[in-house]
């Protein structure tokens, strides 16, 4: 199985736009699109969770619609670093329909994404973590500061181009 997988072309591929043909909306995406919300269908992930791509400007609207549809539990906010751009991935769960949905929001050049705290307060720490490790700024977050790393840490360690060059650290002081 593993040997049969095609060699990935690292240069121009990221997992998100691997799809060769346009993907149709799943039932959830369709329902949201019917409400007049702009979103991009990204198909299902390997486990079968529907994935929706949402632009920064539409995020809060989509989020509100999803919350009203019963996605009341925010599971996690993951920062992704695709080298050219950062992406905030939000996993939501519905305690009514037991579905999981993935929202992907590409951050712009200034690495800014609207914060989901007004809609799911649970996003608070998750967004702080994403900011801390990935450097994505969440606009509208009430208390965006580092959470896992020391408060005076330099850089965002989960970025692909991160190098630990803090001159204060002993092992960097040669």
């Amino acid at each position: 199985m593993s040997d049969a997988s095609p060699p990935a072309n690292k240069a121009d591929k990221t997992p998100a736009d691997d799809a060769p043909e346009p993907i149709q909306h799943g039932p959830l995406g369709k329902a949201l699109a019917d409400k007049g919300l702009t979103l991009e269908a990204l198909g299902d992930d390997a486990v079968g969770n529907e994935t929706l791509g949402v632009a920064c400007a539409d995020l809060l609207g989509v989020a509100k619609a999803l919350r009203d549809d019963g996605f009341d539990l925010l599971l996690s906010v993951s920062g992704m670093d695709y080298k050219e751009y950062r992406q905030s991935v939000t996993h939501l769960y519905s305690t009514k329909t037991y579905q999981t949905v993935t929202l992907k929001t590409d951050a712009g050049g200034d690495d800014t994404v609207p914060s989901l705290v007004p809609i799911w307060p649970a996003a608070d720490w998750h967004e702080r973590e994403s900011y801390d490790l990935m450097g994505i700024h969440y606009e509208g977050h009430p208390d965006l500061r580092r959470i896992l790393m020391p408060i005076d840490w330099i850089g965002h360690p989960l970025r692909k181009d991160y190098k630990e060059e803090d001159p204060r650290l002993v092992w960097n002081r040669r």
Binding site: M1, S2, A8, K13, P15, D45, V47, T51, L75, T102
Partner: peptide, 19 residues
């Protein structure tokens, strides 16, 4: 299930959120 060569194991590109 299948014999998997763990050292050179490469799942195809994609993503999964398992819970």
């Amino acid at each position: 299930g299948q014999k998997v060569n763990l050292m050179v194991f490469k799942p195809p590109a994609g993503e999964a959120f398992s819970m």
